[in-house]
Computed example of a mutant assay.
Amino acid sequence: MAIHSRTIAWKIPWTEDSSSTAAAVQLCYEHLNGSCVKTPYSPAPRLILYTVFSFGAVLAVFGNLLVMISILHFKQLHSPSNFLIASLACADFLVGVTVMPFSTVRSVESCWYFGEIYCKFHTCFDGSFCYASIYHLCFISLDRYIAVTDPLVYPTRFTVSVSGMCIAFSWLFSIIYSFSLLGTGANAAGLEDLVSALTCVGGCQFAVNQSWVLVNFILFFIPTLVMIVLYSSVFLIAKQQARKIENLSSKTGRCSESFQDRVAKRERKAARTLGVAVLAFLISWLPYFLDSIIDAFLGFITPAYVYEILVWIAYYNSAMNPLIYAFFYPWFRKAIKLIVTGKVLRENSSTVNLFSG
């Protein structure tokens, strides 16, 4: 979901006398004036890269599809918090469908074969789904904070309508911002000479000037800071609650938990799981955003292969959340089993109890 995609390629003007040059290098479009130079990999690395990148795309598509089907099909999972998770999965699913397959070809072939129009859409989708993910995660952290600090009052404070507003904001703001920035060309203001030098047939370059790189970083940094503060508070409160319950049990000699204790324990576990998802997001995306701001202020010095590595670490985040849910949530594993075996097609399958043994 990189806010700007760069295919580092060189432009070779084609003339009848340049056949010897063409023989020495491979072009994205042979015999085409102004074609980008292709920098292909040898067969073994090429196969490995296609396998790794394609696996990420498939995992992002089918893993997030399972999350969405699970939450939307089973009535027991219909909650404001889970609707946020389903919407987050939708953003990651769309990355797997509209971004990763095309980026796979671009990264391995070092050429863009999908047309100038989709190059723009690809980059817009990239930015939109990145910001949609981070704002979903920010609202999820707020949801977990309310749930852990006051679990009994939480259902009346974070309702379906509140969740809906959070989802609407995350999508609308992200899409409007990304399409406006890239659609108007404001991102490249002042970089016309650089864009002209890099533009060639078979390339997909979107340079972002220093001002907008700074704005992009701020839009990433603010929700990130909010998440860190909220989750730090959540884990501090959870630790205090656990200590309080332990002290009470030792004093009374009872091991049984009250209803409030059980609710608090469940919310803490959910917060811990989603905290891991937030941490995974930060580890995936922070290096890319830091590089983008350093790169813009130092004249785009990042080597192409380093840039591709950072982009794919970020892309792989879209495939990670389903794995995190499968690892931490027994109900998700049970839901996957019902979906994969086709039992969700049975009558009344939506009322199955996913929280029983």
Rank of each mutant, 00 (worst) to 15 (best):
M165E: 08
I324F: 08
V208T: 11
A57D: 04
F129M: 03
L32N: 05
L84A: 09
N64T: 10
Q76D: 14
F220G: 01
A9C: 10
V229W: 03
A304Y: 12
T104V: 02
V234Q: 00
V208L: 04
A168V: 02
I3C: 10
P303A: 10
L32S: 11
A60L: 06
F179Q: 07
N317Y: 14
S161F: 03
S256E: 08
F93E: 02
I134T: 09
V99T: 09
F55M: 08
A335L: 04
D92N: 15
L194P: 01
P80K: 06
P155I: 01
G275A: 03
F139Y: 12
V52D: 02
G63F: 02
L142M: 07
S211T: 15
F327P: 05
E257D: 08
N247V: 15
E192F: 06
Y113K: 13
T149Y: 11
K11T: 01
L137R: 00
Y305S: 15
S356Q: 11
L282G: 01
G34R: 13
S292P: 01
S233I: 04
S19H: 09
S258Q: 09
P155K: 03
V108R: 05
L225S: 14
A186H: 11
P155T: 05
L142K: 03
L298G: 10
P13K: 12
Y131W: 13
Y177A: 02
M227I: 09
P101D: 06
V58E: 03
I69F: 06
S249T: 09
R254K: 13
G203I: 09
F173L: 06
T156A: 12
A147P: 00
T39S: 08
W312I: 11
